[in-house]
Design a protein around this nucleic acid. Sequence first.
DNA 1: GCCAACGTTGGC
DNA 2: GCCAACGTTGGC
Length: 157
Amino acid sequence: MAVKYWLMKTEPTTYSIDDLAREKDQTTCWEGVRNYQARNTLRDDIQEGDRVLFYHSACKEPAVVGTAVVTRGGYPDSHAFDRRSKYYDKKSDPENPTWFMVDIKLDQKFEKPVTLAQLRDRSALKGMVLLQKGSRLSVQGVKKKEFDTIVKMASAT
DNA sequence: GCCAACGTTGGC
DNA sequence: GCCAACGTTGGC
């Protein structure tokens, strides 16, 4: 199966790329996604070895701040079964889970984040889901070309 | 099954 | 903090 490319949003006040960098093995489970479209992507489409753009949203300077690698494809989000978790959902049945998550490992933290404004400036990126009006999907596909363009932008001086 | 009301996201 | 866009809920 070919490697695929994704973008995942997070609010840095909740969980930032520096939090990921501090994790054991720089790996974490991407729990708490509670949107059906994103759930379908996590459950059905994201596989081990896929690449991820790590995006900071709802903050001073929204930006892609680094990349990560998927180390485990979609599996049930156990937080939904944990009454004490803020992601608890009593409607999710452990026998037939509603919500899914993946594991990701930090690949590269960009020295210079690629800001939303910079992304909008690139005509090659015009088709990105992130840049569409009203788009608020927290887990979304990106094209290889888009992924490569953004990584290149991060390393340009 | 429609749709108004409500809650959330997220850029600005 | 504002507000537009979107998703979900629930009455009918």
